Simulated assay, not measured.
Amino acid sequence: MKKVLLVTASLIALAAVTPASAADLAARPYTKAPPMVAAVYDWTGFYIGVNGGWGSSRSSWNSVAPFLVGGEGSHDADGGTVGGQIGYRWQSGGWVFGLEAQGNWADFKGSNNSLLFPGFVNTSKTEAFGLFTGQIGYAWNTTLLYFKGGAAVTSDKHRINSAATGALFASSNDDTNWGGTVGVGLEWAFAPGWSAGVEYDHLFMQDRTVNFTSPAGALVASDRINQDVDLVTVRLNYKFGGPVVARY
């Protein structure tokens, strides 16, 4: 009888211990959660885009020998512009470097009455311009602030008209003028590959002597013309390549 009671007690004790032991064996060890990964925009890659906005070209005319020498005054040639750009950027840390070529059609027109030759109106029109620049900027993820500088070229036309009738008195050949440019821009990447921005540029164009001929072909005037241009454009770019990189 005692042996039966001892066996029974042993079985009861074993039954009480077994579930707890099974639970201990099934418990999973604690593992640390992996670190979070942040998606950061990468500005590296080729891009192409369009732009449009407003520009103002300021021209100062000075008559030179062999004609009467003196200042004829200045005027602003204002109007709209539309064009495109293509470039490449590469990013190192937060710094972004780039090269870009931009070409625009323009319609900047203006005039003033000549201070030296009463009765005549001097007119200027900028029909196109191009920019070839390097860039340096700093990116805060999808926001990029950059500065640019390089070479600029404009395509201009100059006319002298009668103040009384508006008839053409003399014109120049189409004038291609080279100079330099500096600018600043702010760009925001709003979708994978896509970015939009606003940019300001100032063009320092070289002084040059422009000869004017009458409709009959006779040389009737020569002016030393000084020109600079201010531009404000809105830009839309598409960048080729992966839009983000993973960083811990």
Rank of each mutant, 00 (worst) to 15 (best):
L115D: 12
F147T: 14
A216N: 14
G130C: 00
G217Q: 15
P118F: 01
T126I: 06
T181P: 00
S155I: 11
I136N: 00
T133R: 13
D156E: 09
A189V: 01
E199C: 04
K125N: 04
G103S: 02
V96K: 02
G130W: 00
A151K: 01
S195H: 05
V182Q: 00
Q91A: 14
V184A: 09
W105F: 12
N161T: 13
P215F: 05
T181Q: 03
Y146S: 10
E187S: 11
N112K: 10
G183N: 02
Y138V: 10
P192W: 02
F204Q: 08
G179V: 02
W178P: 07
N177E: 11
D107W: 08
T165E: 02
G217N: 13
G166Y: 01
S155C: 03
L116S: 02
L99H: 03
D207G: 13
S172P: 07
A170L: 05
L168D: 02
A163G: 05
D174P: 01
E100S: 01
L144Y: 03
N112H: 07
W95Q: 03
S162L: 08
L99N: 06
F212T: 10
S195P: 06
F97T: 13
G98Q: 14
W194V: 03
G150T: 05
F108Q: 04
G103N: 01
G98F: 09
A163D: 11
Q135G: 07
A216Q: 14
G185I: 08
P215M: 11
G193V: 09
D107H: 00
G193H: 08
R159Y: 04
E199S: 08
E100M: 13
L116P: 04
G119E: 12
V96L: 05
A164W: 06
G179T: 01
L219S: 15
E187Q: 11
S155G: 09
E199L: 06
V198F: 04
G119L: 12
Q135N: 11
D156N: 15
G134Y: 02
V210S: 13
A191E: 09
